[in-house]
Amino acid sequence: MSKIVKTITCLVSLPIIVFGLYIISHGHLTPGGGFAGGAIIATLVALLAVAFEKRLSQQLFSLAESLGLLLFIILGFFGLSSSFFHNFLAKAVSFGPNPGSINSGGVIPLMNLAVGIEVFGALSLIILLMSQKND
């Protein structure tokens, strides 16, 4: 693409990453969460693939998707003392003085992070595979 598109992509890439990470990390306080944040960061990959027309490596994204899903399932197994996917951190992290703090929610922020990584990897992989010629 033209130089304008490349420059604007470089300018806008950092705010997109920050906004996506904000949506993921505040998933238990504000609307959003892992799915929405991961999709927002995956749009950056689409933008980069369109603007720079280079072959991006698919290894990183498939690794991210596998790692996110694995982290999610491992977090589920951690709560196995009572049941699968039990929120074992809900009582450990204090509730009461400030329920709106980012430190609340128990295991929910960690699961948001895992799902965010997974959605980012999966959507980026789909975008890359559909936008680039595989020859």
Partner: peptide, 21 residues
């Protein structure tokens, strides 16, 4: 019960976590 302000996140990642999986 979950400590999260967002009830949607609480349902999605605590009460109905198997669904999210």
């Amino acid at each position: 019960e979950t400590g999260s302000n967002n009830i949607v996140a609480a349902v999605l990642f605590d009460y109905r976590c198997l669904d999210t999986l």
